[in-house]
Design a protein around this nucleic acid. Structure first.
Length: 590
RNA sequence: CGGGGUGUAGCUCAGUUUGGCAGAGCGCCUGGUUUGGGACCAGGAGGCCGCAGGUUCAAAUCCUGUCACCCCGACCA
């Protein structure tokens, strides 16, 4: 991208940490003059920040193209009708940015482009001979986030690479799995090149739908996602998805005492009751109620976990479908109000609430399906009970209890591989996500092709996203020190910064000559030609994190040398290098 | 959307309790002295105190409304 003089561009560095920034990457991106906020979750990318973005995009393009994908560009502004068939205008909810034009037509600012690309494909692709195809774009995406935060990590407008692949088969040559694996490998190369330390975890596919997915999680304490990894190194998953290994359960244990009711006014939450009853949350049962539906039939699901655990809705949904009755679907919208209206004492529900109700499915997590002492709700407002006992209170009253893994995994839980591994929890920034979408979109939108037997076949899809801005923030999160950013070389805004102590005389001549030579060698070089004292120049060079700094001062020049300093500290305080060797040194240490 | 907080100079913030000349540091401009890790001296520019009403002789300060931003939670490909 050529050489540049500091005085001829805009790099507004700052000593002070802006008040609104709470995480290191956000603070440093502001201080180094990479970005500027113009509103909640909206950022200018200034010249330095834009250069980093372009470098990341180039890496993404190279790897995507190498993996056989073709770039295109779709609009960010999408007529709302595109979402009608897939119902995503509803399913995506308030996060979908909506607007109305002067004619009163509704549109959305695209959060992703499944519908748009499927429409495109439907228009031109009619034969299996045209498949497989893998198309991608790098485009601004929009989400009406309730709460943008952490700088570019969660904003309302952001750059994303999104790719979509189309297949007739799942397996075999040209099948979905082949492209999925290829994307998976390309993602590894992309994140490796960007200098990220990341974990690949199994993930829920979420509102986008689909059958299998992996997330690429940058390992960082500022991440908003919780991931669990087996200490055997053979399993990793997002907490939304993470299964838990086998745990013994026993519903037949003898009561520990008389079931005694206690008045617990205005204490619907576990913590309040725990304090009040002097019972640890781990000895309390938490009971959540949802309606289920199956055509015209409906009923209730009562999910029970220990007080210190969280119910995982997706797991309950899967258990209901796979182990109870395939036709049942969980209703989560407005479930609390519905349950209240049906007479459940929300906040004070116990497993006994199933007694006397038909079509009521009780599912207990193994850790909750135990004998011993339990405190739980009394199924009436403002009351709990001590000495709840599964056999006496539930089984003997004729209620069947399913025992299954229905809670979120926690640090210390057994690995689902049941190989003695223990799950360890950590935080991650989601920088990439690959999905097997299946035929969700193609079926909804009527996209099918004829196969060689003249049979109509639903097109099988995959989709693959990468957050460009998040890569940058993540790279900074894991590559900075007290002086500023330490860019991984491939995504640094410049490869070399030349810092003349004083930009005049011989120093100026040498600076200009090196600038030109280094540039011709294919490296991007920034010359700090400002009329500043050396201190601020050094501080700024450290802050913006250029990998190689050439300091040009009288001491070194007297020996025909300049000083080479590497931002990562690998050359210590610097090394004298003869002027004629500087270019090759820069090139080799890139 | 619930709870909490903040809006005053380009940036970070005092001043608001108890109404009475619009402040500091950093940055910026001019001149001078400096010049290898955020210099010093002197001078200077810069504000509709978020916005709109109200109370008052007088409002950054009190009252009402409103907008924006930040934090915690909820939410989230």
């Amino acid at each position: 991208m050529g050489p540049m003089k500091w005085s001829q561009t805009l790099i507004p560095t700052s000593r002070q940490v802006p008040a609104e920034a709470v995480v290191p990457s956000h603070q440093l991106m502001l201080r180094a003059g990479l970005i500027r906020s113009i509103g909640a979750g909206l950022y200018d990318y200034l010249p330095l920040g834009w250069r980093v973005l372009q470098r990341v995009m180039n890496i993404v393009r190279e790897e995507m193209n190498d993996a056989g994908a073709s770039e295109l560009l779709m609009p960010a502004l999408i007529p709302i009708e595109f979402y009608a068939d897939t119902r995503r205008d509803v399913d995506y909810g308030d996060n979908l940015f909506r607007l109305t034009d002067r004619h009163g037509r509704s549109a959305a600012l695209g959060p992703t482009h499944e519908e748009v690309i499927t429409e495109l494909m439907k228009a031109y692709v009619t034969s299996y001979r045209q498949l497989p195809l893998n198309l991608y774009q790098i485009q601004t995406k929009y989400r009406d986030e309730f709460r943008p935060r952490f700088g570019v990590l969660r904003c309302r407008e952001f750059l994303m690479k999104d790719a979509y692949s189309f297949h007739v088969e799942v397996d075999g040559p040209g099948g979905l799995n082949e492209t999925y694996d290829r994307m998976y490998a390309a993602y590894c190369r992309i994140f490796d090149r960007c200098g990220l330390d990341y974990s690949i975890v199994e993930a829920e596919s979420g509102p986008i739908g689909g059958s299998a997915s992996h997330e690429f999680m940058c390992n960082s304490p500022v991440g908003e996602d919780t991931i669990l990894k087996s200490d055997k190194g053979n399993y990793a998953a997002n907490v939304e998805k993470c299964a838990i290994g086998d745990r013994p359960h026993d519903l037949s244990g003898a009561p520990t005492g008389e079931r005694t009711k206690v008045h617990t006014p205005n204490l619907p939450g576990i913590e309040g009751v725990s304090d009040f009853l002097k019972v640890k949350p781990s000895r309390m049962l938490k009971t959540i109620v949802w309606p289920w539906r199956a055509g015209e039939r409906n009923g209730w699901v009562i999910a029970v976990v220990c007080g210190h655990h969280d119910v995982n809705e997706a797991k309950v949904r899967d258990i209901l479908r796979d182990q109870v009755d395939r036709s049942l679907t969980l209703q989560t919208e407005g479930s609390e109000g519905a349950a209240r209206a049906a007479g459940f004492a929300i906040g004070y529900v116990s497993p006994s609430a199933a007694i006397g109700r038909s079509a009521c499915v009780v599912i207990a997590d193994p850790d909750a399906a135990q004998g011993g002492f339990w405190a739980t709700g009394a199924d009436e407002m403002d009351h709990h009970v001590n000495h709840f006992n599964w056999k006496r209170e539930v089984l003997d009253k004729g209620v069947q209890v399913h025992v299954a893994d229905i809670r979120n995994a926690m640090d210390g839980d057994p690995s689902p591989l049941n190989d003695g591994g223990v799950l360890r929890a950590s935080k991650g920034i989601e920088v990439g996500h690959v999905f097997k979408l299946g035929t969700k979109y193609s079926d909804a939108m009527g996209f099918a092709v004829l196969d060689e037997k003249q049979q109509k076949r639903s097109v099988i899809m995959g989709c693959y996203g990468i957050g460009i801005g998040r890569i940058i923030a993540s790279a900074i999160e894991m590559n900075h020190d007290e002086n500023g950013i330490v860019w991984p070389a491939p995504i640094a805004p410049y490869d070399v910064i030349i810092t003349p102590i004083k930009y005049e005389g011989e120093a100026r001549e040498v600076t200009d000559r090196l600038e030109s030579q280094i540039s011709q060698a294919g490296l991007d070089v920034l010359v700090d030609d400002r009329d500043e004292r050396p201190g601020p120049k050094f501080k700024d060079a450290d802050l913006i994190g250029i990998p190689i700094r050439l300091t040009i001062g009288d001491k070194a020049l007297a020996q025909g040398c300049v000083e080479v300093v590497k931002r990562d500290g690998s050359l210590g305080k610097g090394e004298m290098v003869r002027i004629e060797e500087v270019v090759s040194r820069c090139r080799s240490s890139r």
